[in-house]
């Protein structure tokens, strides 16, 4: 069976900027697939190519075996798209927006009222249905947008940064809903630059950086591939540099320690990468005691997705995000969003 989404060797250039340089990944039917990367990595551009809003310069894009470039109208029937910025007509009520959406997807008239009712119910929007969307909170707007994207029961639901800017409660509601959706058989493809979101939701993930996929797999596969456990050690709440250096020299001499970094931004705490073994923490504590060094706090953890990103790109996702946002040309991005099929 053809994969739910197939993206192969996708290239897209905006003027002199290469937004996508060779993006490839596959989403299997019935899974939640996460596209993780910092702002400006090419996540939205990839989704725009998938949803027929932009035409790629080259590459293959298929939904359930249907070529998006050759049969865009068929592809659009298979897709539900929830954009990052919710565009609701604020004078319409939620129900009216869904009625419009139903007509745009040519749902048979007898089916429309029932579909809208079910959609409102599943997203807990019944009591808001006849209010104008201009009165909705951010979380409600997102939920209505989700209901709209799902109205025609697409086989693939595509979400661009579904919880950006939402409060924790709304975020949890949307996560739960997406899991339910997956369990009912809908394929979900979402982008995020929240590690936590991808880790909590995605069955499989592709990490995208500067227009290309740098890693793909299940979150635990990716973490295993990075190898080693992480130990964070604080000698004191705020350790002086001298003592930290002393501890570093001692720790690096231990056979199971691979790397030690002093994190001056965190009160000279020590970040250690160790070979995964159950007694690493115990051995380290023993060695510290013998060297007469104090312990304020110590914790061992498996590598996180951020470590995966770090090992592939040499920078943390947060750093990349900050760097990207200082370089972004917001005006150009706005233009790009308005552009249809260029």
């Amino acid at each position: 069976m053809a994969p739910a989404v197939l993206i192969e060797n996708l290239h897209k250039r905006y003027g002199s900027r290469e937004a996508l340089r060779d993006v490839s990944f596959q989403v299997e039917a019935g899974e939640i697939f996460g596209l993780l990367g910092p702002n400006g990595a090419g996540k939205t551009t990839t989704l725009r190519c998938l949803c027929t809003l932009s035409a790629p310069d080259s590459g293959r894009v298929e939904i359930a075996g249907v070529s998006v470039l050759e049969q865009p109208k068929v592809a659009r029937q298979l897709l539900g798209y929830v954009a990052q910025e919710v565009a609701l007509d604020k004078v319409l009520t939620g129900r009216e927006l869904l009625q419009l959406q139903a007509a745009l997807y040519h749902l048979p008239r007898p089916l429309i009222a029932e579909r809208i009712h079910t959609g409102l119910q599943r997203l807990g929007l019944e009591s808001w249905a006849d209010q104008k969307t201009g009165t909705y909170s951010g979380g409600l707007r997102k939920r209505l947008d989700l209901a709209a994207g799902l109205l025609h029961d697409p086989s693939v639901l595509v979400l661009d940064e579904p919880t950006v800017g939402l409060d924790i409660e709304s975020r949890r509601v949307i996560w739960d809903f997406l899991r339910q959706l997956r369990d009912r058989g809908t394929t979900v493809l979402l982008t995020s630059h929240y590690l936590e979101e991808i880790d909590a939701l995605a069955d499989r993930v592709a990490i995208i950086d500067q227009g290309t996929v740098i890693a793909e797999g299940t979150p635990s596969q990716l973490k295993d591939r990075v190898g080693g456990d992480r130990i964070t050690l604080k000698l004191r709440e705020f350790t002086n540099a001298e003592e930290a250096e002393q501890a570093k020299a001692m720790a690096i001499s231990l056979p199971f320690v691979q790397e030690v970094i002093i994190n001056s931004a965190q009160g000279n705490s020590l970040n250690l990468i160790v070979t995964p073994q159950s007694d690493a923490l115990f051995e380290l504590q023993k060695a510290l005691k013998e060297a007469g060094l104090p312990i304020f706090g110590i914790a061992q953890a498996r590598p996180s997705l951020d470590d995966v990103y770090l090992s592939a790109t040499g920078k943390t996702l947060l750093d990349a995000d900050i760097a990207a946002s200082s370089q972004r040309d917001l005006k150009a991005e706005q233009k790009q969003r308005m552009r249809s099929r260029t």
Partner: peptide, 11 residues
């Protein structure tokens, strides 16, 4: 961005 809602639909 409302136009995008129309453009992703199978009109």
């Amino acid at each position: 961005g409302f136009l995008n809602r129309l453009l992703v639909a199978p009109l």
